[in-house]
Design a protein around this nucleic acid. Sequence first.
DNA 1: CTTATATTTAACCTTATAGTTAATTAACTC
DNA 2: GAGTTAATTAACTATAAGGTTAAATATAAG
Lengths: 120, 120
Amino acid sequence: MQDKLSQTFAALSDPTRRAVLARLAQGEASVTDLAQPFLKDMSLPAITKHLKVLEKAGLITKTREAQWRPCKLNPDALKDAADWMEQYRMFWEESFDRLDAYLKTVSSAKHGKGKTNGNE
Amino acid sequence: MQDKLSQTFAALSDPTRRAVLARLAQGEASVTDLAQPFLKDMSLPAITKHLKVLEKAGLITKTREAQWRPCKLNPDALKDAADWMEQYRMFWEESFDRLDAYLKTVSSAKHGKGKTNGNE
DNA sequence: CTTATATTTAACCTTATAGTTAATTAACTC
DNA sequence: GAGTTAATTAACTATAAGGTTAAATATAAG
C-alpha cells in the first residue's frame, strides 16, 4: 500500500474503524472513549492499532492533553476519497438510461475480434 | 472482512483496481482489454484476481460472450460507498467554522477527568 | 517515590492479500 | 481434431492485517 488514497480506502474498509469515525463525527474523544464500545469484542491495543491506521491514512488527528490522546476527525482525507468517488456519480444517478445509451455509442464495436477496446 | 461496505472499500484500496474501474467508466471491456495497461507490471492471473475482488465487492459485473468475459461497472456498490461518505460531507465543506463552533458546543466538557465522552 | 490511569510497544500467532509460474478449461477457426 | 486465443484454476510464496497477552511508557496525584 503506497498512495494516500489507497491508504484511505483501506482504512475505511473496516467496520470498527468506520464506527470510530462515526463517533468522532460527534466531537473529539480520547482513546478510551473510542475504545469503550468495542472492549467486549477486542482489546485496547487492537484499538490503538486501528487508530494508527486511521491516523496514517490521514482520517484522524491525534493530539496530546495530559495523559490523554484526544482524537478528532480530519476531513481532508475524507474529502479526497469523496472527490475520487465523485467522478462516478453519473453512474449511479438516475440519468442511467442516457448514460447507458451514451456508453453504447462510445464503445460501438467493442471486441469484434477481441482486439479493439472501445476507445478508438 | 464480512460486510459489503467493507468489501467495497477494500476493493477500492488498490490503484490497479481503481484504474480498472476508471477504464470501465468508458464502457465494457474484456479481461484482456483491462489487463493490457498492466501486463508490464503483472501477469494476467493477477488481473483475474483483481477482477474477482471487484466482482465480489459488487463493483463490476462479468458476463459471457463467446470466449470473452466482458466486464462492466456496477454502480450500486459505488453508490453505497458514496452514500456512506455523504454523512461526512459537512466536515469537509466550507461551513467549517460553523461546524467547528457546533462541535465545541456539543462536546463541552469533553474529558475533565477522562470519563465523559461528549455525548452527555 | 509510589500508585493509579491512559496509552503504546513488543513479541507473537493466524489468516488474508497480492503476486508468481504452470497447467487447465472454454470457445472459436481451420 | 489440431491449433489459437481468452481466461481461469492450482499450487506456492512473501508480506500485510488484525488480533492476542505481557511489559513499558507518560502524566498526574498522593
